[in-house]
Design a protein around this nucleic acid. Sequence first.
DNA 1: AAACAGGCCTAAA
DNA 2: TTTAGGCCTGTT
Length: 280
Amino acid sequence: MEISEKNGFVELTTEDDFDLEKIFECGQCFRWNRQEDESYIGVAMGRAARISKRGNTVYISGTMEDYENVWREYFDLDRDYRSLRRQVAVDGYMKSASDFGAGIRLLNQDRWETLCSFIISQCNNIPRIKGIVERLSALYGREISFEGKTYYSFPGADVIAPLTVEDLAPIRSGYRAGYIIEAARAVDSGKISLEELSGQSLKQAKAALMALPGIGEKVANCVILFSLRIPSAFPIDVWMKKAISQHYPHGFDPGVFGENAGLAQQYMFYFQRSGGANNP
DNA sequence: AAACAGGCCTAAA
DNA sequence: TTTAGGCCTGTT
């Protein structure tokens, strides 16, 4: 992988899987938006950025320092996804799903933001989830100027903790507002340490998260996979239920993928939601 | 208009 | 241990 810095962008040339559209639209994140020129602008880890790709070169706005401090970890660039993709292709279906999803990477996102975002995701569709997250950020986040426009960071748990559900009314998150505030209080008070959960087992992390109100197995698994860096988490939502009943009618155990179960899940999910197996 | 959306909670068997 | 209904809001 070659890396250099030029014109306010870090340029990174790699043979590994890296497809912007699949990474940002496979359902793991909510704050990256495609621009007319097919680049993406988003806010993550307290900063705004533009990212694009031409050929095998990825362009990420910012300095080499930004890259080392934030984006290298965020985009999980020290992991070889081509090799992982081969490892999860354990049967014909998974070969198809992983081929179809080639280019997906699992992001290492901010833990609190991910927890809050997936609380919001329950029983919601993606446009509305994105809308609620944007309104929450605009209302309580910090202003960020980028390319002449204003963006907003995702507000910290310390900012949300003292609020009431009435304070969150403008974001129109409905009954999830109470869950958001309770989660913020647990994180802010130290009652739950998301950082420490990162180092624990899947089972322990899941139990700790599910002790919070409004967090069940599915949301817990999403938080664990997308921000706690525990790669064996395997979120099962309605799309995954369909995929499993269609392709594994006689039983299914994510354990067959070992530590790579989470990535396998992303391929299955993306394939299913894109109608991959039905209209190739 | 009524049903449903990337769940969760509670009550009831 | 599994199942049904309700929940905010928005869209079809």
